[in-house]
């Protein structure tokens, strides 16, 4: 447990040695807020769905930039800055080392999602029932964790492929389309709904919408359970990929090849 948490926190602090507060505010707080406003106004103009649909959906999605890029950076930056060999020389289990990296990013994602939901609601006048707040906190946390493990899976690809940032950028834009955050799922083709069901955010956005609508935690539970399952699945895939790619990069002596 100590390895999981302390290792993650140290890696997170190291990242913020070169990620400045202005970068944090600009990229992770202001950016997602404008994304929310963009889709809320577009949705209003087209009459696709209510403001509530866009505020809640985009607030849940707001965690994705921090979590997906964070998870990716957790692995690929080790390679970029030449520290991957040191990490892999450690006699501790890599799975724990790397899975621990995802936890602070998930915490970060939760903070960003909560900020986006709060400010978005204040700006566009959405009233969130007080009773829904604890359930929303759990939902945003599960969504963020699931997203961070998804990011870690992409980061694991960084052990094998050179340009993992391309994959991350494309994945972020696919989340916009496939999670049903901006286009109601029933307007998407069946295959997109199936793919979206296997992505993080989709089910937590649904759970959050149920909570904000006042349906209660019980009504949100099935979707929340699915989001949790998706997160666990990505954690397992990330751990497996890290193991396979580490072994392969040792065999091919390509660990630090950029």
């Amino acid at each position: 447990m100590r390895l999981l948490t302390v290792g993650g926190v140290i890696a997170y602090r190291a990242l913020f040695n070169w990620t400045t507060p202005s970068m944090f505010v600009g990229t992770l707080l202001v950016g997602p807020l404008f994304q929310l406003l963009f889709f809320a106004f577009l949705g209003r103009q087209l009459g696709v769905a209510s403001d509530s649909f866009y505020i809640v959906g985009n607030a849940v999605l707001a965690a994705s930039v921090a979590c997906v890029f964070g998870g990716t950076m957790a692995v690929s930056n080790e390679r970029r800055y030449g520290t991957l060999g040191h990490v892999l020389l450690s006699p501790r289990p890599r799975t724990l080392v790397f899975l621990g990296r995802a936890v602070p990013y998930a915490g970060n994602g939760l903070l960003i999602a909560a900020f986006t939901l709060t400010v978005g609601s204040l700006v566009l006048g959405l009233r969130v029932p007080l009773g829904a707040i604890p359930g929303l906190a759990v939902t945003l946390a599960v969504g963020s964790l699931s997203c961070a493990f998804f990011g870690l899976t992409l980061g694991a690809l960084g052990l094998r492929f050179r340009d993992v940032w391309l994959v991350s950028n494309v994945s972020i834009s696919l989340l916009l389309l496939l999670t049903g955050v901006n286009v109601p799922a029933d307007h998407l083709p069946a295959w997109m709904r199936v793919v979206g069901g296997g992505l993080p955010i989709t089910h937590s956005a649904e759970a959050a919408r149920r909570l904000v609508a006042g349906d209660g935690f019980g009504a949100a539970m099935p979707a929340l359970g699915k989001e949790f399952a998706v997160g666990v699945a990505y954690a397992v895939v990330a751990a497996a990929l890290l193991k396979v790619f580490e072994a392969e990069s040792r065999r091919r002596a390509s660990l630090d090849t950029l």
């Binding site: 087209l46 696709v48 494309v170 834009s173 389309l177 286009v183």
Partner: peptide
């Protein structure tokens, strides 16, 4: 790849939004 793929996703999103709307 970014210049080609990401805009296609955005265009697809826009198409479904405009179709879903009025």
């Amino acid at each position: 790849a970014t210049a080609l793929f990401v805009p296609l996703v955005q265009a697809t999103l826009a198409v479904y939004l405009f179709r879903a709307g009025s």
